[in-house]
């Protein structure tokens, strides 16, 4: 299995961006780039070819699900797995995100000390089965 190394984090809230960077780079040992919005995420994903995109659902401009659709339309980013992040916790909604092609959903607020482990587990689970 390919190890998870590069993560592109897309989030409009700068505080969350920063804490996720600490959580993923320092605690988790990943390589991380952050984008403020869906549009720049689409071009960054094309350029940088991350292993995983961690995508906030609710963003101004194009939102998370739309960004996912665009990533899928673009050949170079078609197969990059996406995990959504959302503060909503309705099972039906999570179900919906999975149905449109997300690996899984990380619920906000997240714990910066365990976020990396959570992503690794999702990564391993999706590759196991």
């Amino acid at each position: 299995m390919k190890p998870l190394q590069r993560i592109l984090h897309v989030e409009d809230d700068i505080s969350i961006q920063e804490v996720a960077k600490v959580a993923l780079e320092i605690v988790g040992g990943f390589e991380v780039r952050s984008c403020d919005d869906g549009q720049s995420a689409i071009s960054c994903a094309d350029d940088w070819q991350p292993d995983l995109v961690l995508l906030d659902v609710m963003m101004p401009g194009i939102d998370g699900p739309t960004t996912l659709t665009r990533l899928r339309e673009q050949a170079s980013t078609q197969s990059i797995p996406v995990i959504f992040m959302t503060a909503k916790v309705q099972p039906s909604e999570i179900e919906h995100y999975r149905a449109i092609g997300a690996l899984d959903v990380v619920i906000k607020p997240f714990d910066p000390m365990t976020l990396s482990t959570q992503l690794r587990e999702i990564w391993e689970r999706s590759h196991a089965g």
Binding site: D13, S15, I16, V19, M85, T86, A87, K108, P109, D111
Partner: peptide, 10 residues
Amino acid sequence: HRIAGSAGTF
């Protein structure tokens, strides 16, 4: 919504 999703993390 922003606060709901972030306050717990901090």
